[in-house]
Amino acid sequence: MASKSRSKARPKRRVAPRKSPVKVSLGAVLWGLALVNLAIGLGFSEATALRSVTVKGVGADEIKGIERRLVPWAKIPWSRQNVSTMETAILGDNRLASARVTTNIFGRGEVTVVRRNPVGRLETKIEEGVVPTTGYYVDEGGFVYRDGWAEQFAGASVRLPDGAKNLHLAVMPIWPMRAVGVVCAKSQVLWPEQALTVVLDERSVLSLELVNGPRIILGTESDLDEKFLVLERAFRDEMEKMKRTKVINVSAPDRPVFSE
């Protein structure tokens, strides 16, 4: 039986119409290059240097100081400005905890700063009849800085060892000053109306001296949260006993000692 071979017709392939190339006029190319050159030129031009600054977070006196520290950037083009260097210059004022700078090509800048929050002030010998103009303060992180004298300062008084009174605190371990800041802050919360002194001695032992109250030995920086919990319970639940107590030792918070 003869077999018939059938030839299948192949489908015709569709040929996509060719797109005509987009023609770019020489004028458009030249305009594009001119705009690029203009942008680059502006970026490196003193016309984009820092001309005006908006400062947020501080008062008028600090604003003037910040503006003075940014004067060198009034001649530096925007493309060469380094905001990190600007922020470092601003933080040359130790009263400031942080600074954030933004600038734009139009010569405008914005500075947002956060001021340090003082929780303690170093003891200062004050001559009779003389009001100091400045004092040394401690923030919550234990950083010591100089600021204007606040007559009605509500924070704790801080007494440091004689060797630290020159404020070269780098020679001391870092942790005692940080602990001093923590103790000052916690004391403000526990005794908001009580005048007191935070003492750091030569052995880096911390203690508290309450005016018309007991002396409190805290010991080292360890377990400060637990130590203040013991003190909080004692002054809340045993007020009469606290009036008779002369010394409280919470250096071991699980075994506090109350001496009358």
Rank of each mutant, 00 (worst) to 15 (best):
Thr134Lys: 08
Glu67Pro: 14
Ala16Tyr: 02
Gly148Gln: 14
Asn212Cys: 00
Glu226Leu: 12
Pro11Phe: 03
Ile126Lys: 10
Thr102Phe: 09
Ile90Ala: 03
Asn212Val: 00
Ser7Tyr: 08
Ser45Glu: 06
Arg95Met: 08
Val198Thr: 13
Lys23Gln: 14
Val113Glu: 00
Val144Ser: 06
Leu38Met: 14
Glu128Ser: 11
Thr133Asn: 10
Phe153Arg: 11
Ala99Lys: 08
Ala9Cys: 05
Asp237Tyr: 15
Tyr145Asn: 05
Gly43Val: 12
Ala150Met: 14
Pro17Met: 07
Val211Glu: 11
Pro173Asp: 13
Leu208Gln: 03
Asn249His: 02
Ile66Arg: 02
Arg203Asp: 13
Val130Gly: 07
Trp31Glu: 04
Ile248Tyr: 03
Ala164Val: 04
Pro11Trp: 01
Ala99His: 02
Asp237Glu: 15
Arg236Asn: 13
Asn249Glu: 10
Leu210Asn: 02
Glu62Tyr: 12
Glu123Trp: 03
Asp162Lys: 13
Pro11Thr: 04
Pro21Thr: 05
Val182Met: 12
Arg178Pro: 03
Glu193Ser: 15
Val131Met: 11
Gly163Asp: 11
Asp147Asn: 14
Pro161Gly: 03
Gly219Glu: 10
Val144Asp: 10
Trp149Lys: 12
Asp147Tyr: 10
Gly59Ala: 08
Leu231Ile: 04
Lys227Leu: 08
Tyr137Ala: 06
Phe228Glu: 11
Val183Phe: 06
Ala9Leu: 13
Ser52Asp: 12
Lys64Thr: 10
Asp254Tyr: 00
Glu67Asn: 11
Asp237Pro: 07
Pro21Glu: 11
Ala34Lys: 00
Ala16Gly: 06
Leu231Trp: 08
Leu35Tyr: 04
Ser3Ile: 12
Lys56Leu: 13
Thr245Gly: 04
Val130Asn: 01
